[in-house]
């Protein structure tokens, strides 16, 4: 297995976006790309990352391999790469290590690191194809700010989607808060658009703690998609055009 990115920045951001939610995980490498699927320890949230082979500078995977890695260790290794350095990952069949090589674009500095692989029992979940009742596309910075703001007032947020607006509400000991975002088009700046596709109205409640973990992916993508159906986990997708995506799933809070 050998994969090379032109710039380390994307991989650094991907790891930063998921490492606080899931500790150790397996990267599944096939000839179509690298992916991981992992739940947090409480089985409330799930992360699914796909890095498509087309998004790499070069990519080769002769035999499918599952590499168990501590994401904190991977973050440490990637700290040693400059944002514009190229990154090459190499793993030989049956080897218990993965190699990282970083090269500056003027080629005057090359650094190499070897990370021990771990034995990880991965439990993959089958995520059913879902026709969601409401899909909201919005700037990822708006979601990050909304979740951070409301976290000051409560632990949970109720997201309600109607035809032309989406409402985020919370309440706690010191008071209540809500943020309403209205659909707005923007032909010249599609990344600032708020688009609401509503088949049925939805109202779901989620723990803000997890949403704040998810919005760590905001630096990867200008836009985010919230896919919701009543009594169903929320899917939060950060698309990375040409590269792949990060999808987070979050189980709702339900009436006792």
């Amino acid at each position: 297995f050998e994969a090379k990115w032109d710039h380390a920045s994307t991989l650094k951001k991907v790891i930063d976006a998921v490492k606080d939610l899931i500790g150790d995980t397996s990267w599944d490498c096939t000839n179509t790309g690298m992916s991981l699927q992992s739940m947090d320890s409480s089985h409330v949230a799930l992360v699914h990352v796909l890095l498509k082979s087309e998004g790499f500078e070069s990519y080769r995977c002769d035999r499918n391999v599952s590499m168990g890695i501590s994401l904190n260790s991977m973050a440490k290794v990637l700290k040693c790469a400059g944002n514009d350095d190229s990154v090459t990952l190499r793993h030989e069949s049956e080897s218990s290590v993965v190699n990282f090589a970083f090269e500056s674009h003027k080629e005057e500095r090359v650094s190499e690191f070897e990370l021990k692989l771990m034995n990880i029992d991965t439990e993959h979940l089958g995520i059913p194809e879902t026709e969601y009742d409401s899909i909201i596309k919005m700037p990822s910075a708006d979601l990050r700010r909304t979740c951070a703001d409301l976290s000051q007032f409560g632990d949970s947020v109720t997201i309600s989607c109607a035809k032309s607006d989406v409402r985020f509400e919370t309440s706690g000991d010191i008071g209540t808060g809500n943020v309403r975002l209205s659909a707005r088009g923007s032909s010249d700046k599609p990344e600032t658009e708020i688009a609401i596709e509503m088949i049925n109205p939805v109202s779901l409640t989620f723990a803000l703690k997890y949403l704040n973990f998810f919005t760590k992916a905001a630096p990867l993508s200008d836009t985010v998609k919230l896919c919701m159906s009543n009594n169903h986990p929320l899917c939060v997708e950060f698309p990375m055009p040409e590269v792949g995506y990060i999808r987070y799933y979050l189980a709702p809070k339900i009436d006792e």
Partner: peptide, 14 residues
């Protein structure tokens, strides 16, 4: 009063 559900209530092991 709401309680946190688990993903395992919705998704099956693959």
């Amino acid at each position: 009063k709401t309680v946190q559900s688990s993903l395992m209530n919705f998704f099956k092991k693959a």
